[in-house]
Amino acid sequence: MSVDWSAFTPWQALSGGILIGFASVVLVLWNGRIAGISGILGGLLIRVDGDSGWRFAFILGLLAAPWLWAAVHRGSLPQSSFSPGSPWEWGQLVVGGLLVGFGTRLANGCTSGHGVCGLARFSPRSLVAVLIFMSAGVATVFMTRHVAGV
């Protein structure tokens, strides 16, 4: 293991994390709900009367965030050099999306629901979920980057 200190952004990471945590506190204290993105999205597909409004509002907030960010930062959105080129890389996005969608619903949570809210509530279910999806993610990146070599 070698740590890439040049890529390490401790203060942004910590303050971004605190903002994420604060957002989930707002949602639980006013709406009584868990800020789990997969659950919020999934609940939109199985329509229950009177349960869709807050979900749409939360998603709209997520979508508004980059615009607010750009307004503060003189029109510039945070840039990534991420640009899939080969069909294989686009395929990874598609297969990845399918697995994330199905898997998070099967497990009742993703990085936000289990990873943030669940761990903050000391839920053993969430701890198991986080350990498993982190390990699976690490194993997958190891396979794609260091074994398959793409």
Binding site: Q92, G103, G137, A139
Partner: peptide, 9 residues
Amino acid sequence: LFGIGWGLA
């Protein structure tokens, strides 16, 4: 499944 998908995408 989620972890694999996360690592892929």
